[in-house]
Amino acid sequence: MNFLDFEKPIADLLDQIDKQKQIGEKSQVDVSVSVRQLELRLAEVRKDIYSKLNPWQRVQLSRHPDRPYTNAYIEYLTEKEFIELHGDRTVKDDKAIVGGFGTIEGRTVMIIGQQKGTTTKQRQYRNFGMANPEGYRKALRLMKLAEKFGKPVITFIDTPGAFPGLEAEERGQGEAIARNLFEMARLKVPVICIIIGEGASGGALGIGIGDRVYMLENTWYSVISPESCSSILWRSWDYKEKAAEVLKLTAEDMLRLKLIDGIIREPLGGAHSFPEEMFKIVKKEIISNLNELGKISADDLVKMRIEKFSSMGVVRN
């Protein structure tokens, strides 16, 4: 388990509970009362910490190393009935984006998402969840495949951004993202997008045009990361907390500004503390949304999707 700075009281309590249990086992003393008390205290502390998170703390949680990534969701949702599909049919297979057909409670869906790694080696293998153009083109190929066979699309967004490398530029990173925005807007099947971690700018939006766009409670979504924003506006990384605030990047802000359709609550203590519970909540949301969207004709879906995104923005006459 990894703990963030502000999670320290939780870590301490968990530690104490562990120690009590060990004492109980070794010395045959009944520790159940003191453990229960500690657990109650833990619940209180959790509630206290998680009920007043500031934007920067949410950003930190969105990057928590124990937070479940796309593949973990896929495994739970499909109960491992998932066939991964590879490659963009032009250049290569981008490991930063995974995708394939899977079954959720008897229904076939196309699931696509950015994948970060859990170990140093895997992080490199996944390029830290930063896709190259071929990743976006693979995603689009799979969406078109889903459209062809009339299957809904579910995307999991979790990226620090599209990869800003030399080859990415050569192969048209801008064009790849632009093409996805264009084609996703008129995809003739239901599209559900869920931000499960970081939603950084065009790299996130590149698989983020949906009939329903949700954010998990402890995630962020904006045009730029707080660190980069700080370095551009204040010429230093020291203002990231302030940048996180002014960017209005939390799920609550985004919903209030009507730029997303809803927030998916996380279990108290965050998705990283109780991944199983998180999966269950996400599954329920997906199923109820698939049911709703399934009743709408393809033409209406596209029309409503385009209208929704067209209405975003605030201007004065």
Binding site: A178, L181, L205, G208, I209, V223, L249, M254, L259, M312
Partner: peptide, 10 residues
Amino acid sequence: AAFSLMQMAK
């Protein structure tokens, strides 16, 4: 911020 991001989608 996010309003500007969504102009890409729009």
